[in-house]
Amino acid sequence: MMHTIRVDRVLRETVNTSYSDLVTRATGRAVRTSIRQTIAGLEGGTALLDFSSVGLVDFSCADEVVAQLLLEKTDDVIVVLGGLREDHTETIEHVLTHHALAVVVQESPDGCPRLLGLVDREAQEVFERLHAHGAADAETMGQHLGWDAERAQDALDTLVRLRLVRQEGLTFAPLPLP
């Protein structure tokens, strides 16, 4: 189940501003609290934070809205980002890297998701393979990539720890995205 949260609307409702810019740490904290409340009302699935109508995002606000939200863990709901401009991407990547975090970015419903933040190359490769070919266990993934199962398992564990894929028993699956 995918739930879209329009970040510009949360900003206007929370801070009562006529501007669409996500700036200042205080604003970020208020927006994150509001997003957190929305997520708490969801029963699992994926929450897509839609930045498409957001103006600029500064480092302090990106840290509060995205990095701190990912650090809080959001129960059974996994957070993904969408509608990012080049400057949003750059700022959010900076704060995620600072915290050794990563997030899935879904640019368009028909486009391939990608990772943003600090992820090693092996986890990146496994992520792309999962999205291209669907769910797999570590052994199958290792065979696909010409790796031993342990190496594939390590990469999959990294992705699970960062909440970038789902684990069901021994099988690892991409996040449900539109």
């Binding site: 810019d21 700036v23 740490r25």
Partner: peptide
């Protein structure tokens, strides 16, 4: 073109230093 947003970010962070 993206420099405008980056400039706005720099301005925002510089101003926040005053308040913080």
């Amino acid at each position: 073109p993206a420099a405008t947003a980056r400039f706005g970010m720099a301005l925002s962070e510089a101003c926040q230093n005053i308040v913080e």
